[in-house]
């Protein structure tokens, strides 16, 4: 039993890292712009598709970062459309990103087709505490942890990171001291694009990606981010890991088909629980 458990936990941590990366992209954008970016799962899909194409001409280790960089540009583009027009409210921008996510289906199907895609990751399996785990999951964890540490350093200890945090904390005051809030919002979208793409690139070798995989990814990413009120990357990481491990355990010991219900039920419970602790009038306006 114990050896199975270790395997499930590591698999769950790996998938959870992916959810956490998608979720942290949502957080990066939401903190600065108050927009929940519905195209966040799309970034992961496009990242995975780009990497699969680049890998046919470039070696591992070069193709993946290039794909992440390319999707950072896609993120910038999404940001331009979503918040570029003055006077667009965060609610309107949410619907715009939803529209862009659907539009992206057309682009992805046109360029990469509608069949699932995958590419090879770290080959083989390793034994952890007597349990067998695909080695690639260790890479996923090994990349995600430093990325989150780097984000913490960036947001807390660099001028640019502080300026982004300032926009999140008080946009009016940020403008008063000369920070270009719109440009910071676009930067946040680019960061969100990169984080989403990283999730896609890391997960694809263990989970095939289709053009409409974005729904599962965004919902799980949102669930992870909701735990931290959509503003705290560290809590998002914890949330993503919790979600990933729970799903892996449910799939391992119970019925794999109930994974979705568990994850979504958890998210609904957290959201409704949070809302119940605050009077409705203080919630985000619709």
């Amino acid at each position: 039993m114990a050896n199975e458990l270790a395997g499930y936990v590591i698999t769950g941590l790996g998938t959870g890292c992916g959810f956490a990366l998608v979720g942290s992209g949502l957080v990066a954008i939401y903190r600065v712009t108050r927009v929940v970016n519905f195209a966040q799962g799309t970034f992961a899909v496009i990242g995975a598709m780009c990497a699969s194409s680049l890998l046919s001409v470039l070696p591992h280790g070069i193709a993946e970062p290039l794909a992440v960089l390319a999707v950072a540009l896609v993120g910038l583009l999404v940001g331009f459309v979503a918040i570029g027009r003055p006077g667009t409210t965060p609610q309107a921008a949410l619907i715009v990103t939803l529209g862009l996510a659907i539009f992206a289906y057309a682009v992805v199907v046109l360029v990469w087709g509608d069949q699932p895609r995958s590419f090879a990751g770290v080959p083989g399996a390793v034994t952890v505490l007597d349990g067998r785990v695909q080695s690639h999951y260790l890479l996923v964890i090994g990349v995600t942890v430093p990325v989150f540490a780097g984000m913490a350093l960036f947001f807390g200890h660099t001028d640019l990171g502080r300026a982004l945090t300032a926009c999140a904390s008080n946009p009016y005051a940020a403008r008063v001291i000369g920070i270009d809030v719109r440009r910071m919002g676009l930067l946040a979208f680019a960061i969100g694009g990169a984080l989403g793409a990283l999730a896609g690139v890391l997960l694809t070798p263990v989970q095939q990606i289709t053009f409409d995989s974005d729904v599962t990814l965004i919902v799980n990413g949102f669930a992870a981010a909701v735990l931290g009120g959509l503003t705290r990357p560290a809590v998002t990481l914890a949330g993503g890991l919790l979600l990933g491990v729970t799903q892996a355990l449910v799939a391992g010991y119970g019925n794999a088909a109930h994974q979705t219900e568990i994850a979504l039920g958890l998210m609904l419970a957290v959201m409704i629980g949070r809302a119940a602790r605050r009077p409705a009038a203080l919630e985000e306006p619709t």
């Binding site: 949410l94 909701v226 609904l268 809302a275 409705a280 985000e284």
Partner: peptide
């Protein structure tokens, strides 16, 4: 319906997926 805005959007989406 205790939720608003984007929370409600995701909650209704989750409802359908479930």
């Amino acid at each position: 319906l205790r939720l608003r805005g984007h929370y409600l959007a995701f909650a209704t989406l989750a409802m359908q997926l479930i």
